[in-house]
């Protein structure tokens, strides 16, 4: 069945086969705005997701990620939007992103912020937000794909800080070199094969990285980890 969705302020239609996908995406349904494009998932698309996935899931789960992949490729060029693998939160309506390889503890660190600054923190998306440039400003948008703990909201928040997270016995936060940032950031997004789209993505990343404050954030699992990060990032 065909449903209409709005993600990152972009309206599109998707032909959905599985109830699972419908449920994942239901907070993003709209009915009164015109769709800019349509997404149809073929058996081959599902097969492709299966081959890319490190897990062995059912076809319904792969339909959901296939919709996301198609969405990303559709919007990169026309809407200045890209996918960025991170846990993102809002503090005082400014987005702070924690990125790292899977298994490093993005959600664990996000949880420390929730625990210590509960009244100030909103989770935008715990795994797969969209970053989109609108009138020169980069925003972090919630998406239906919210990670294992399904944490997130359908909101739009201007990007403020990007933290490259790693585990450490002692907590510390400091600046990070631009060249390191680019290489690390490129590993947290989907890289298009189409050279034209790749150039577009590199341009977007360049602008994004220049606009946000980038940090090398080394943390353990104590409350102090979130507190020192908070004090540095949210200082003003």
């Amino acid at each position: 069945m065909i449903f209409r969705y709005k993600i990152a302020e972009i309206v599109f239609e998707a032909d959905i086969r599985y109830r699972f996908t419908y449920n994942v995406m239901k907070d993003y349904l709209v009915d009164d705005e015109p769709a800019r494009f349509s997404i149809v998932i073929s058996d081959e698309d599902i097969e492709k997701e299966k081959n890319l996935s490190p897990y062995d899931l059912n076809d319904a789960s792969y339909e959901s990620t296939a919709v996301y992949r198609k969405f990303i490729y559709e919007v990169m060029d026309k809407y200045d939007a890209f996918f960025f693998h991170c846990s993102s939160i809002a503090v005082d309506n400014k987005a702070i992103m924690f990125t790292a390889k899977s298994g490093t503890g993005k959600s664990t660190h996000r949880n420390l912020w929730l625990k210590n600054f509960a009244d100030k923190v909103t989770v935008i998306n715990d795994d797969k937000p969209i970053i989109r440039k609108i009138d020169g400003v980069f925003y972090v948008f919630g998406t239906p794909w919210q990670g294992k703990e399904n944490f997130g909201a359908n909101i739009k928040v201007p990007a403020k800080a990007l933290c490259f997270l790693s585990r450490s016995e002692k907590n510390s936060i400091g600046p990070i070199k631009t060249s390191d940032v680019v290489a690390k950031a490129l590993n947290q997004t989907v890289r298009p094969k189409d050279p034209r789209l790749m150039i577009k993505l590199l341009d977007l990343l360049d602008g994004f990285i220049s606009q946000v404050d980038c940090y090398d954030l080394r943390v353990n699992m104590d409350d102090e980890a979130a507190i020192i990060a908070y004090n540095e990032i949210v200082k003003d």
Binding site: K177, S179, V182, D194, I199, L202
Partner: peptide, 14 residues
């Protein structure tokens, strides 16, 4: 593809 970022450059495959 070679792309310059600040003082460094990065090569990606397309």
């Amino acid at each position: 593809l070679l792309r310059q970022f600040g003082e460094g450059s990065i090569v990606v495959a397309v």
